[in-house]
Design a protein around this nucleic acid. Structure first.
Length: 469
DNA sequence: AAAAAAT
């Protein structure tokens, strides 16, 4: 057992934690915070939802506050890089909470919004800057920002930041950082090849690995349903309809492999009277912010996303993650299902696996060393699917979520099933006769409504039983 | 091969 009060953090930080009711440090926090307060570089690997943001924020804020320096124009003392805008915003908001009683300025910059306001906010300098790479470099090129004074450099989701799409920008950034600095890398996954690549950006780091790399969150129950691609939409619609109605599903996050696919799923759900929002990189920033905001607020209980939402996003009440398609990079699966079972809650992940995705499943199970539990199709799936309304045809191009008017509530429309070829199904899968409660087989889904909250921790649950693998 | 990230 470890408390924040034992870790030597400054009183204003403890006070901020206290007002939120946080007292217990998680294992990653307990191990990372002392090393970071000493100024060491660090490679931190811990499961999703175990408080990595606080692990790097608290000691860094402590050090900045303990050694006050005047702000230099266009400068920052701490730089945090994130792979998505939404995650950057979330990190900055969390840090502002921790720094509530400190005289530290925290700014956040990312693309998709006007640059002028961001540039002005940096004119007199800031203590902490949270950023996505593109806008960061843009501001540097405009001379609105300099990295000359960075003391602490944080790469969140470090393996993704060093992946192909980001490595070029990262190298540019790293070249501008002072050699003398503290570097912190955090992620739940860290493939060896990427870790090797990372050595050029970090200096003799302390490695804090709370669970084996790519270990999934402990309280996610993982299921797999084998289903033909053409039948996935009907299965999702029926599962969501049942689970939302009986409240076994609080909020559901549905992952699609493509942006187009995410839009298509949302349209299908709308046709069936299930309100859902899509979030992906082809949406405007305003649409993205509204979609995630509505999901956080609970005004939309189903969010359909690409891997833009796979990492870091912390929304309470996500009871279910559906993988409408499996990711082809197995590490992404670990991050996706980590959107549930956060902050002491438990969660359910269901992956829809078409015949041509079985290799992905194999790679995922090999990486996580967890075997997903088969969840058969409901006994009367074909009959129920046949009664779903036919999907609206899209005229083409991006379509605003046209109000569908949830008129078609019941399965009263015997729509033709022309794009729903009847797939062969193993006889064994017909066995189940119980009514499906959302997707959770047997009474688990009921229990989750009354999930108890453990001792309060920051963005995390306490480590518990190590999974048997 | 897809997605993310600058305009």
């Amino acid at each position: 057992m470890a408390y924040f009060s034992e870790l030597g953090l400054a009183e204003p930080i403890l006070r901020a934690l206290g007002t939120k009711g946080y007292s217990d440090a998680t294992p990653i926090q307990r191990q990372a915070i002392p090393a970071l307060m000493e100024g060491r570089d660090l490679l931190g690997i811990a499961q999703t939802g175990t408080g990595k943001t606080a692990a790097f924020s608290l000691p860094s804020l402590h050090r900045l506050a303990a050694d006050p320096k005047p702000r230099s124009n266009a400068g920052c003392r701490m730089l945090v890089l994130s792979p998505t805008r939404e995650l950057a915003a979330q990190i900055a908001e969390n840090m502002r909470g921790y720094a509530k009683y400190l005289a530290l300025n925290i700014q956040c910059v990312f693309g998709g919004v006007p640059v002028g306001k961001q540039a002005r906010a940096l004119e007199r300098g800031t203590d902490v800057l949270v950023a996505t790479p593109g806008r960061l470099l843009d501001l540097i090129d405009q001379r609105a920002l300099t990295l000359r004074h960075v003391e602490v450099f944080v790469l969140d989701e470090a393996d993704q930041m060093m992946d192909l799409g980001f490595i070029h920008a990262l190298k540019r950034v790293a070249a501008m950082l002072p050699k003398e600095r503290q570097s912190l890398f955090f992620s739940a996954t860290m493939p060896q090849a990427i870790a090797d690549l990372g050595r050029q950006f970090i200096n003799n780091p302390v490695k804090v690995e709370v669970a084996p790399q790519s270990t999934t969150a402990e309280r996610v129950e993982q299921f797999v349903t084998f289903v033909n691609q053409a039948e996935k939409q009907a299965l999702l619609t029926l599962s969501l309809r049942a689970g939302l109605a009986d409240e076994s599903i609080d909020r559901a996050l549905v992952f699609s492999r493509t942006k187009h696919g995410a839009d298509r799923v949302v349209r299908h759900l709308a046709t069936a009277g299930i309100p859902a929002a899509a979030i992906h990189g082809n949406k405007s920033q305003a649409q993205r912010t509204a979609a995630l905001g509505g999901f956080r607020q609970g005004t939309v209980r189903v969010l359909v996303a690409t891997d833009i939402a796979a990492r870091g996003i912390d929304v309470s009440g996500v009871s279910h993650v559906f993988n409408f398609e499996l990711p082809n990079v197995p590490e992404q699966y670990v991050h996706r299902i980590g959107r549930t079972a956060r902050n002491g809650a438990d969660g359910i992940a269901v992956s829809y696996v078409a015949p041509d995705e079985k290799n992905y499943l194999r790679d995922i199970e090999k990486l996580t060393r967890v075997k997903c539990t088969p969840l058969p199709l409901p006994e009367d799936f074909q009959r129920q699917a046949a009664r779903l309304p036919a999907p609206a045809r899209k005229p083409g191009g991006e379509q605003q979520a046209r109000p569908q008017g949830g008129r078609r509530e019941g399965p009263r429309n015997d729509a033709p099933r022309r794009d729903r070829p009847r797939g062969e199904r193993p006889e064994g899968e017909r066995a189940r006769s119980d009514r499906r409660e959302g997707v959770a087989a047997d009474g688990q889904s009921q229990q989750r409504k009354f999930r108890p909250r453990g001792p309060k921790t920051v963005g995390a649950h306490k480590s518990s039983v190590r999974r048997a693998s």
